[in-house]
Amino acid sequence: MALPTSVKLFEMAPRDGLQNEPGDMVPTATKMALIERLAKAGLAHIEAASFVSPKWVPQMGDATEVMTGIDRRPGVVYSALTPNLKGLENALSAGVEEVAVFGAASETFSQKNINCSIAESLARFAPLLERANDAGVRVRGYVSCVLGCPYEGEIAPHKVAEVAKALYEMGCYEISLGDTIGVGTPLAAKRMIEATRQQVPIECLAAHFHDTYGMALANLYAVLEEGVSVIDASTAGLGGCPYAKGASGNVATEDVLYLLAGLGIDTGVDLQAVIDTGYWITGELGRQPGSRVALAKGRVSA
């Protein structure tokens, strides 16, 4: 299959990138500035917050302040994670125009992450999707552990396909397939997509790959060849999963942009602006960017 001519990048740094930061909460103003810088760089889909209990994810405790305080850029979708109806109602009150729910392809991970089985998690999402639909808000679905689980090891592709199909049939407009612990390799990624596309249209599938073993870009190239045209990435490689020991950050947006540019694939995103943003936010966090492209090309502006 031919490579896509354009790819939609879904930026994860403000939510998936910052939710796992240790210590004090990242200041609300810093989160807002990050979101606004990313939008200015041309990223048209940004997951900006998570309406979860601060007890479980303290860094996301200011979701309402973030979503009501950002300067929204025309044409940019600012989404938020909403694991339950209460989270959805809070998100709607904050003017969120797109929300996301998350399930898993691993029974054990589902139990550890959200304290219920896969079937129970899907059942919980039904009223949420109904409410979101009534409110005119789109819902994106995430499937964790699509290429491996920290508790169960390898995950069969048909299990991923089953969960993705369930979310799609419930009304999720797009299903993001997450290699939560970054153990996937290109052939495994291809097989997973081949199985899942039998149940969900390929244009409704996104790749969300972590780079724990340095395979994220290779895996992304493999699924681009299968027709995937939506990629989740995090500026400066920020992020990880608090319930997956050893899981390093998402693949860096800068590195994905460099790959796509080399393939002649359009994204509409300014690579240097993202590099500069990555240097800025990691400076705020007291470390260097996790992007190889950023480290190689360097920073141009503050």
Score class of each variant (00 low, 15 high):
S121K: 02
G290C: 01
S121Y: 03
G286K: 12
A33F: 03
A236H: 09
Q19I: 04
T30K: 06
A218E: 01
A33V: 03
C241N: 12
T235E: 03
H158P: 00
V66E: 08
R131D: 11
F51E: 10
A244V: 12
A252S: 14
A252L: 13
R140C: 05
M170N: 00
E21A: 07
G136H: 14
G103M: 11
P54V: 12
S144C: 05
A261K: 13
Q272A: 03
A119V: 13
E36N: 07
P58H: 04
K245R: 13
Q19Y: 10
E36F: 02
F209H: 03
E36A: 03
R191Y: 13
L129Y: 12
G298I: 08
L147H: 06
G69Y: 12
T30I: 15
I35Q: 07
N133K: 15
M12V: 13
Y142T: 01
G153N: 11
I281C: 04
Q199M: 13
R287G: 10
E154D: 15
E174K: 06
P27E: 14
K55A: 13
A166N: 10
C241L: 12
Q111S: 14
E162K: 10
M1N: 15
S248H: 07
C116G: 04
N20Q: 01
G136R: 10
R299C: 15
L129V: 11
P150T: 10
M60A: 14
E203G: 04
V269I: 08
L259D: 02
G237M: 02
K159N: 14
C149P: 12
T212K: 03
A296Y: 02
P54E: 09
L3M: 11
I155H: 08
V230E: 00
F102T: 14
F125P: 05
T30W: 07
G262N: 15
G42D: 02
G184M: 07
E89K: 15
L3A: 11
I202C: 13
M192S: 12
A135F: 09
Q19M: 12
D232F: 06
G214F: 09
L88T: 03
M192E: 05
I275E: 13
D179I: 12
S79R: 03
G214H: 08
T253P: 12
M12I: 13
R191H: 15
G262M: 12
L263H: 10
I35D: 05
Y243C: 05
E174V: 01
A63E: 04
V137Q: 04
K297V: 15
S229R: 14
L34E: 05
G249N: 06
E203Y: 13
V223A: 11
C145S: 06
V143F: 01
E47A: 04
T196K: 02
A91D: 02
L92E: 12
G264E: 04
T108M: 14
D270I: 08
A189S: 15
G23H: 02
H210Y: 05
G240W: 13
G227Q: 07
I46Y: 10
V200S: 00
A206G: 03
G69N: 08
D71F: 00
N219V: 01
S301F: 10
V57H: 11
V160D: 03
P58V: 08
D266V: 13
P27T: 05
I46P: 03
C241M: 07
V230T: 15
K86E: 14
L34G: 05
A164Y: 01
G87C: 11
I281G: 10
R197W: 02
V143P: 04
G141K: 08
L238Q: 09
V146F: 06
D232C: 02
L18N: 08
L295V: 11
G103S: 15
